[in-house]
Design a protein around this nucleic acid. Structure first.
Lengths: 147, 147
DNA sequence: CACAATAGCGTGCGCCGCGCACGCATCAGG
DNA sequence: CCTGATGCGTGCGCGGCGCACGCTATTGTG
């Protein structure tokens, strides 16, 4: 078999996806954050944190679901006080989904917890490897097969 | 911020998971394989391919769902001729889920396609980087934060 | 050997999230 | 001003899931 690396990565990703899909980790990380932050609504929070206020229609393809789905999830997040709907100044039909301070804080803390969780198990790696891995992973994201 | 690598990896994984969750890629990869192989049933196939015949109860935690869920998905896969139920010789209550030849071939081809898809976009990387990345990724799976 | 307790499997039930289609409000162009 | 197009939110039906139950087979106990 010539395509050794491809298979290696493919298998690893398969396992990784299965592992991270488990709600267990997410439940552990969201300890005490309220029911609104589940593995369904988190992609919305994360996307907003990365790209800033956006409309539901913009968010839909990024979240991998229908506009109506974004609406519903956003409503839940709004009820929990993590985001708010702001009228689009240039278009009165549209509303912009924007993180509240509480939302910003929540996603920041979640990111922090995940990073700590990852770093904790990586301190046994040889010194440079973690940095190299992080760099490769970033390139894999930005230039890889899943763009 | 001191935990640079952790954040780097955390963000990259977040993006990666969002990307790979999209049904688009899976639909592309399963082109012409029939409706039975969807992103719901694939974990079952993959687990069987990795570990050999297993009971539904064994598979449940690995697939991240209830035993009844495994039963239902297995039934669909059985109807599609990808797996079959074999009586457990040591326990006549239990049935072992085992890949048929067609199932073996299907999962092998899917793995092949994914590996090719990955390798294709990695041939622009510097020669050694892909191997290093694959090695690190494997270690990340086996010793990392998601075991 | 008889009988109770346990374990594995499959199924009915209710819940929930999703896509689809529709209605409503707004915008853009004639 | 009027018509078609666009963005949003909601009712509807579908489908997957967990839970609880029944059935069968196994194990343990006297």
């Amino acid at each position: 078999m010539e395509n050794e690396v491809g298979h290696e990565i493919a298998d690893a990703l398969g396992i990784l996806l299965k592992r991270t899909t488990r709600t267990q980790l997410h439940k552990h990380l969201t300890e005490g954050m309220g029911k609104a932050v589940d593995e369904l609504t988190y992609p919305i929070l994360s996307a907003l944190a990365r790209t800033g206020p956006r409309s539901a229609a913009d968010l839909a393809p990024d979240a991998g679901l229908d506009r109506s789905g974004v609406t519903r999830r956003a409503s839940r997040l709004e009820a929990a006080g993590l985001i708010r709907r702001e009228p689009d100044p240039t278009d009165r039909r549209a509303s912009l989904l924007v993180l509240t301070d509480k939302g910003e804080h929540t996603v920041a803390e979640l990111r922090e917890r995940l990073a700590a969780h990852i770093a904790a198990s990586l301190n046994s790696w040889p010194p440079g490897d973690a940095q190299t891995f992080a760099r490769h992973l970033r390139r894999f994201i930005t230039e890889g097969p899943f763009v």
